[in-house]
C-alpha cells in the first residue's frame, strides 16, 4: 500500500474547512494574548529600539496614546 492509497481514501474534502477553523483558533489565541497583555509591558517592549546605547532620548507619548494601546 502506498501513501497515496491512504490519502486517496482519507476523505480530505473537509481540509479547506479545517484550515479555516485552524486559522480562526490560532487567530483568537493570538488576539487574546495581545489584548490581555499588560500596558506597561507593551510600553517597555515598544521602547526597545531606543535602548541601543546611541544616547538619544526618544519622545514619550502622552498618557493613553500610542504604545499603551
Amino acid at each position: 500500500m502506498r501513501v497515496s492509497d491512504v490519502v486517496q481514501h482519507a476523505d480530505l474534502s473537509i481540509w479547506a474547512e479545517a484550515a479555516l477553523v485552524l486559522f480562526f483558533a490560532a487567530f483568537m489565541v493570538t488576539a487574546i494574548r495581545a489584548i490581555r497583555v499588560d500596558r506597561r509591558e507593551t510600553e517597555a517592549m515598544a521602547a526597545t529600539p531606543f535602548d541601543d546605547g546611541d544616547g538619544v532620548e526618544h519622545e514619550r507619548r502622552p498618557s493613553g496614546e500610542g504604545a499603551s494601546r
Binding site: 507593551t42 531606543f50 494601546r69
Partner: peptide
C-alpha cells in the same frame, strides 16, 4: 520608522496580531 520618527510604534499589541496572522 520609530527610530526616524523618534517615537515608539503606535501599537505593540497590534504588531503581535500582525505578525502571527
Amino acid at each position: 520608522l520609530p527610530k526616524a520618527a523618534n517615537r515608539p510604534v503606535f501599537s505593540y499589541k497590534l504588531s503581535i496580531v500582525h505578525f502571527w496572522s
